[in-house]
Amino acid sequence: MANRAVGAHPLTSPELAVGPALAAQPPAKPEFLIKDSTSQWADRTFQFAMLACGLTVLLLVYLIIYELTTKGTLARHAFGWRFFFQSDWDPVNDRYGALSFVYGTIVSSLLALLIAVPLAIGVAVFITEMSPRWLRTPLAFTTELLAAIPSVIYGLWAIFVLVPLLRQSVQPWLARYLGWTGLVEGPPYGIGMLAAGVILAIMIVPIISSIAREVMTAVPQQQREAVLALGATRWEMIRMGVLGNARAGIWGGIILGLGRALGETMAVTMVIGNRPEIAKSLFAPGYTMASVIANEFSEASGELYLSSLVEVGLALFLVTIVVNVLAQLLVWSVTRGTPARSHV
């Protein structure tokens, strides 16, 4: 906070810089003390240069919005809102509808959350509240290493390790015991919505758990001690004292993970099957908004085709922005020292 006062520079006016005492002894005065117009000019130029860099950030976001809206105009005029509510994607006849991509993106992301959230919270709870002190840093570092692995390597691993595993063991087992729900039926290809959900889950666990750890650490120690003093066991202390107070922030982490899952491209493209259809079964192949751009953008020949893909990109951009801003606000509400609320 104190740094913010730096703006008040004590030596900006020339008569202050070259005080009478200094001016009286020219030889003792090092050159850099001279506060002339050149130096002021340099200061101002420097500030402008830094400002220009800062404004570049604004310019970039403006460019993103501008590029996406202008290049998507054609599709917007041709289809309007119907674009997002019809599912035929037919480049040959120049008819485009993004519903199956929207569906694939939402289902794969929700599936990923379903798997990742309990795991991530478990990891965060274990690291912050249960693990011995010496194990904390190594565990935190290792789980965060998961976030450093590039998407394309997850995809590679998923194709050759995860998909065969799903096909041979997991999917037959799921079909036998949960087949009656209708959600897991049909031929077990391995590749499909389920594989996409699982690989996405692995990729977003470190994001959710690192935010959860951050907000759980922000819960004041007195909260824990108070609950313990009432005779609670450790788990009761975690549930009431920690999770209850950190709840908004953990939601923020979950939504941040959702944002990442919605925009994730490569790993999903490699295992989801890339077929624009809406199927009830999680075993069936699907397609996501990011994948269709990745697969078809560089070979989209017609103008309407390209414009439709950009429109899909615009929708993806807007959704991730909303999701990320929401997540940011939730995390701030906890880490910015708001008074802890009762969890009931």
Partner: peptide
């Protein structure tokens, strides 16, 4: 915001 924009976009 820019940090959260999907890389494909």
């Amino acid at each position: 915001v820019l940090n959260g924009v999907p890389s494909i976009v």
